[in-house]
Amino acid sequence: MSIIQKLKNTIRSRSIHVCYVNVGSCNGCDIEILACLSPRYDIEQYGIYVHNNPREADVLLITGAFSPQWEDKLKPLWEKIPHPKVAVAIGNCPISGCVFNRPETLVDPPVSKHIPIAAEIPGCPPRPTEIISTILSLAPLIFKDYEEKKQ
């Protein structure tokens, strides 16, 4: 492994840009992501920045079961994220549809039908600690030696 690759790995593990998209959640998971920003949990001390612009992001946090309006919008949004990229499903909704996955519902879970999901954080909603520790443990693994893996 070249020394540049090592440097890249180190930098990447300390600088993760996050974008979140709500595809039909109840807001519970969204405010738990927001709570991660608060000085109590302080997500930025680990080098994670919340951007909300898919073109700048590395990690896409997805909350919510899949509502019909997103059918033609989530895929383009996912394609706009530059490589290396990874999607994380937050909460029960993108995994299973939570309590909304019943007959007569409008949502269409799971989200993994539409874009590849790398990790799932179960819980309704998950605690901020669970969200932070998952992103921290996942991101270095995904982004490590990205250039070498690509070849």
Binding site: N22, V23, G24, S25, C26, G64, A65, S67, P68, Q69, W70, F100, E104, T105, L106, V107
Partner: peptide
């Protein structure tokens, strides 16, 4: 609207 319509 319509982005989070779940039909509760």
């Amino acid at each position: 609207l319509g982005y989070v319509k779940k039909g509760i």
